[in-house]
Design a protein around this nucleic acid. Structure first.
Lengths: 341, 341
DNA sequence: CAAATTATCGCAACCGTTTGCACAATCCAT
DNA sequence: ATGGATTGTGCAAACGGTTGCGATAATTTG
């Protein structure tokens, strides 16, 4: 390995007969330093490819220009989109992003956050796992005075700013759209009752029914645990084979809707004529299914950008107390699976 | 912000009436230190939650326990799978991963790699952009004695170990499967001629035809530039509307196959009866299309694991010269889109 | 019992940069 | 000429560990 000894301030000082401190100040054009000296030093540094030792600077300033990012799942269209946005914004501001995943397992999340905590990160962006409630491991961040911003999957137990999507509104619009298309018996395959997003969507679903004076039918509301295609399939089967089957299904997410679609297609039930279908998240898969799936776009990229912006603001202005919650609007994407008319 | 002053070796020394050096050695049970002292120090450190300042250690040892990872695209099923594997392995070995993307733009890749280079990373995992050929910015890593491992999209211009998939073999098997199913006029919508993977798959395609004594028809070979659904659609249209249309299409990747499928379905051409279709990569979309798409699984997770393993080996044994290329086998996943029999 | 080991521990330099402060030189006004 | 600003530069401490080497005291050896 060619271990080219890197140039240091000391080297420049020796070469130019200046002290280290003068060189240091000259390089940042400190007003105390004579213009000639500044030019001289800068020229020399330039010519000899001086690059400051970030490790030393970070040590000195006690920060790293790195921020951590933890999501439940990396191989996930929505989350990878958020990450993409966060990276884009962070890089723009001169920060790098450390990525980790919790696999929706609390233990893994704790491990990941601890690994990032030890001085190796200036702040943390996190979307918590399904198993996370209190988040002691996250409080450690706050205790050390490090900034934390939650996004998408959040807990109010943790006093940090958050960036979330208006799940209530998104669900409300999706269900209202179904109603407007003439569907009457709208089912909801919902998410876990201990997860905020899932509850908000559920509330939106309920409100839309209420506003349209439609009855709320308990047997048409099914709770997923793992949010999988299999659950979508199974619940749809149960409902369609039971009495008073639904004529439309609003699913907590696109994969679940895919499971539902799979069952319906197997049974030759026409979509959207006999049963309408709406998902959530606008994964790539929603465009690829046939019929194409009506869904709710969550603007993941923008969420990543906003979350990173907020966090970096906090890092740069340690004095200000941030506590805002940024709520992003969703966008209903109407495709074939719900267009009865 | 509660800026709890962190405990340092000096603090412990003062409290226990020991020198900083003794405390430092005691904590790592140095043989020079008396057992009692070791116990005493460790107990005190434990009780007062001493946590060493990583920044100081890294500065001293000139390393960070972070490794960089650059991919062309983050929102991409295959790449996010690879990242997931790399993170899993890196974390297991006590390293964190900095993620960035090039968007297949050379300038972005250079920016990302430079951002990571400046002492903030011990090594780099990279899948190069379509625009990257020589990779001067990557040579800078090697010049500084930092380890680099290429994966998936690689260039031989850069003397580093790589982890790749046996594209040739994967394509050969895919096309052989089509032939075995009775297809005779097999088209190939290929990737860029300046990208190695694309060429390997092309070669595999050619070899399979040759081995089956089938003619190679130039008008049935189309090169994508951007590897998009639109290209798949367009090329399929051209070929199907031209003379001597194909009876099967082997596509460089699943998205392109989706474009092809879209055209075929629009025109009411039956898949797989009239035209067989095979993709590459086993994206989630391939399972969701209907008919489901036959494709080639690239074992992305394993690729990430292997690449990280290799890189960390290199980092830990700077003395050994690594130059191996690890080739992972692919796996043909046969689904409806290619089963004529 | 003197000499040679050995067991413990502290001193101090070092990694590369930042920064408060002192100091010397120059300048202007009195 | 004298005193007070002003300007440009260097000294040295600090950040928090690591580590080679030397010092001291305790122990063993011939």
């Amino acid at each position: 390995m060619t271990d080219k000894k890197k140039l240091t301030l000391k080297d420049i000082g020796k070469a130019l007969n200046l002290s280290v401190s003068t060189v240091s100040r000259a390089l940042k054009a400190h007003p105390d330093i004579a213009q000639e000296t500044i030019d001289l030093v800068k020229k020399y540094a330039e010519e000899h490819h001086y690059v400051p030792n970030l490790l030393a600077i970070n040590f000195r300033k006690n920060r790293t220009f790195n921020i951590g990012l933890i999501v439940p799942e990396l191989v996930h269209h929505f989350f990878s989109t958020v990450i993409s946005g966060a990276i884009s914004e962070a890089n723009k501001q001169g920060y790098n992003i450390l990525v980790s995943q919790s696999n929706d397992i609390l233990k893994d999340e704790e491990k990941a956050s601890r690994a990032m905590l030890n001085s190796s990160v200036d702040g943390l962006l996190i979307s918590i796992s399904n198993e996370t409630t209190v988040g002691e491991h996250l409080k450690e961040f706050l205790d050390e005075g490090k900034a934390v911003v939650q996004f998408d999957k959040v807990t109010e137990q943790l006093p940090t700013p958050m960036v979330i999507v208006d799940d209530f509104d998104g669900a409300y619009n999706a269900v209202s759209h179904l109603i407007e298309q003439g569907y009457q018996r709208i089912a909801h395959i919902r998410g876990r009752i201990d997860v905020k997003n899932a509850c908000d969507r559920y509330e939106g679903y309920i409100k839309a029914l209420e506003d349209a004076s439609l009855p709320i039918l308990d047997h048409l509301i099914k709770p997923c645990i793992a949010i999988t295609e299999e659950e979508g399939y199974q619940f749809t089967k149960e409902m369609m084979e039971g009495k008073n089957p639904p004529d439309a299904i609003f699913c907590i997410t696109d994969v679940v809707a895919f499971g539902a679609m799979k069952y319906l297609k197997e049974k030759g039930i026409a979509i959207p004529e006999e049963v309408g279908l709406v998902g959530f998240s606008n994964w790539m898969v929603s465009r690829v299914m046939s019929p194409q799936l009506t869904t709710v776009n969550q603007h993941g990229f923008q969420m990543g950008v906003e979350a990173a912006k907020l966090l970096l603001d906090m890092i740069k202005n340690q004095d200000i107390a941030y506590q805002e919650t940024k709520i992003l609007k969703t966008e209903l994407i109407v495709r074939a699976s719900s267009q009865k008319k």
